[in-house]
Design a protein around this nucleic acid. Structure first.
Lengths: 128, 128
DNA sequence: CGGTATCCACGTTGATACTG
DNA sequence: CAGTATCAACGTGGATACCG
């Protein structure tokens, strides 16, 4: 299985610019994990860690547990040495990808307008 | 201008069941405010308050400020007695409605599956 | 009417260290 | 390798009271 490239901070990445990203899927990191698994392949914990170096192991674990609990992904543990654990999207998890794409498309089309609006915002509240 | 009906807790309402609602737009209440203004009409602060009685004035003010700052809505204050302030979506704010509908459609189609998955979840992690 | 000011409880994130 | 334990820091959200 090929290594996942680290997910750079992209505009359509919920990890970056929460400020400029009005759409969120699930918890803070759910969207990025979905992106890591969107091709349908199963990934090991370490692969996900390597792809998302800015998430601590603890938070990644919590995110994966939460997604598992909601039925978005399935966890498979193999009793080997060294241990191996794999995560893959379920059909329910894959069903999130469409709306996620819609949100990302919005961000690509309009995201910069948010920054423009904030830059232009003075806090003045003229009286009509 | 007609009174806004209170927004009941609907499944596609981000206010209810954060747990079962994986999509969020902006801050906690941004989505509901968008819904209140989606018809394009301007609403007074008090109208929004009445429609969203479960949001405190402070938090509603913060939400409106944040949305104004991001360019999602425009605030108009009229120097009258008693004071009048109106909020209306900007074109940028209206552009959010499409993705919001997509997210709500997902929730209607798949939302119950999350609850099912949680009910079925035992925390057992069988070893393969 | 349309807000602010103040204070607080809570949940989430994060750093660090440790383990089967 | 794939986690867990612990603790600290922070931001959000909410209750209440007051103001121009």
């Amino acid at each position: 299985m090929s290594e996942l490239p680290p997910i750079a901070v992209r505009f359509d990445d919920p990890a970056c610019a929460d400020a400029a990203q009005p759409f969120r899927v699930g918890d803070k990191w759910t969207g990025v994990v979905l992106r890591c698994l969107e091709d349908g392949a199963a990934r090991r914990f370490g692969e996900l860690r390597a792809a998302l170096p800015w998430i601590t192991a603890k938070v990644l674990t919590e995110t994966l547990r939460s997604m598992e609990r909601s039925g978005f992904l399935a966890r498979s543990a193999y009793d080997e040495n060294p241990p191996r654990v794999e995560y893959a999207l379920t059909p329910l998890g894959r069903s999130l990808l469409g709306p996620l794409d819609t949100a990302c498309a919005w961000a690509r089309a309009h995201g910069t307008e948010i920054g423009d609006a904030r830059a232009a915002y003075t806090g003045d509240r003229p009286v009509a």
